[in-house]
């Protein structure tokens, strides 16, 4: 699948402070999470990808076109930035209308389209005619999202889109983001809150200290972290027996046993070959007549990848 966004050796300096260092990445269609701790360079990278900030070196191409100085590309790009900034005296309808007119949407039917968009992002109807300065944080966030989506862009950049939203709001916005991707659009979501991303996508671009730490599918990235064997948790009815049977297997590095009063137990294994272990486990359990109740890998997820990568880097003196 071709890349929607090509980031090629992008470096950005703010005076003597370096914000991005030779960032190279290819962002594929669908939802991609731009992750990193505060100050990692996420907003700078979004600014560069949307043509608002000029890279000191390197180039970004969105949909095959260079972004800097290419205003026509904005027909296909939408941005919901992280700043809580508005034309405060306007109400949501007038604001979205003005942005839509500037995006070239025809005047005919625009009023209905704007109202429909405000409904879609979940802005309560009685707020539509009030000045934006009277809006709550969540309402402002929804208004920002509406202006980004109004012209139906093919690529949408969302910088911390969940800020200020309650759990219901987060769920609704997540559904909208997934809807954009399902309709063939691409979304880049920047955040430092991992659980926001978990339900949306496995595709990540992880930044720390202005550098790319990892890029691609989170599970593939996880399996490539050789310094960190997988932790596998197994809940079964005869844990001692299973532990004994698995202790001779080459793919198992270590086994821990935790048995409660009801003689139900939990095995904690570590392995570097999770694929072999997952193939072996049901076979062994079947041979021994052991009933497996739960098999899970607590560190085959985004949070673990994030922790390992960011922690490893700081241990190596990267920060």
């Amino acid at each position: 699948m071709g890349a929607v966004i090509d980031i090629d050796e992008v470096t950005k300096w703010y005076g003597s402070v370096i914000a991005l260092t030779r960032v190279t990445a290819r962002i594929r269609p669908g939802i991609t999470a731009l992750l990193g701790p505060n100050g990692a360079g996420k907003s700078t990278l979004i600014g560069i990808m949307t043509g608002q900030i000029r890279a000191t070196r390197g180039e970004v191409r969105v949909l095959g076109q260079p972004v800097w100085g290419n205003h026509e590309l904005n027909l296909q790009v939408g941005l919901c930035n992280q700043y809580d900034c508005f034309y405060e005296d306007l109400n949501a309808v007038d604001f979205i209308m003005a942005m839509a007119r500037l995006a070239g949407l025809p005047r005919r039917g625009l009023d209905d389209a704007v109202r429909s968009m405000l409904r879609r992002v979940g802005l309560i109807e009685k707020a539509w005619q009030r000045p934006i300065r009277t809006y709550s944080k969540g309402m402002r966030q929804r208004t920002k999202l509406a202006q980004a989506l109004m012209h139906e862009p093919r690529v949408v950049f969302l910088d911390e889109p969940m800020t200020g939203l309650d759990p219901v709001g987060r769920h609704e916005i997540t559904a909208i983001i997934k809807g954009i991707a399902a309709a063939g659009g691409s979304v880049v979501v920047s955040t430092h809150i991992l659980h926001e991303v978990v339900t949306m996508t496995d595709e990540i671009l992880l930044l720390a200290n202005g550098r790319v730490l990892a890029e691609g599918d989170v599970h593939e990235i996880r399996s490539s972290l050789e310094n960190h064997p997988y932790r596998i948790k197994i809940v079964c009815d005869r844990p001692r027996r299973l532990a004994h049977a698995l202790s001779d297997e080459a793919c198992v590095e270590s086994i821990g046993l935790d048995i409660d009063m009801e003689r139900r137990g939990e095995l904690a294994l570590t392995t570097r070959r999770a694929d072999l272990l997952f193939a072996l486990l049901p076979r062994r359990a079947d041979e021994l007549g052991i009933q497996l109740e739960e098999v899970s890998s607590p560190d085959d997820n985004l949070e673990a990848v994030f922790d390992y990568l960011v922690h490893d880097r700081s241990m190596r003196g990267g920060f």
Binding site: H71, L79, N81, C85, Y87, L102
Partner: peptide, 15 residues
Amino acid sequence: DDRTLGYLLMRPISR
């Protein structure tokens, strides 16, 4: 200063 210029720069109109 108000950071609203970004809205205009994201429209398909020349600077």
